[in-house]
Amino acid sequence: MRDILPDIREWRAAGEEIALATVVKASGSAPRQAGAKLAVTRTGKMSGSVSGGCVEGAVFEKAMTVLDSGRPEVVHYGISDELAWDVGLSCGGQIDVFIEPFEDQ
C-alpha cells in the first residue's frame, strides 16, 4: 500500500474514481504474493501490480465493471495452457484478486 499511496493521494485530490485490486490468495509460483496491490482509475491510470504484467489488463477491465456496479468481486486467475491466448499466468501460479471501489464507507 505504501508504494501506491502517493498516486492514490494525487488521484483523490483530482477527484478521480478509483478501484483497488488486491491479491488475497496466491499459490504456486505466482509472481506476486498476497498483499500485492494495483490501483486503477476510471480514466485509465494505474499504480502498482498484482502479477508480472500478465493479468493487469484483465483486472483493469473487471475494475471498470466493479466501479459501475459498486459491488466488490473476487476474481481467480490461473494457468492458461488450454487456451493459449486466454488471460492467465504463464508462470503456472494462481492468484485470487479482490477488486473493490476505493471509497469511503
Binding site: 500500500m1 505504501r2 499511496l5 492514490i8 493521494r9 483497488l20 476505493f102 471509497e103 469511503d104 464507507q105
Partner: peptide
C-alpha cells in the same frame, strides 16, 4: 468520520 481506506492511508503516513 472519514472512510476506512482514508484512515488506513493516514495511519501509514503517520
Amino acid at each position: 468520520m472519514s472512510g476506512i481506506h482514508e484512515q488506513l492511508l493516514n495511519a501509514i503516513e503517520q
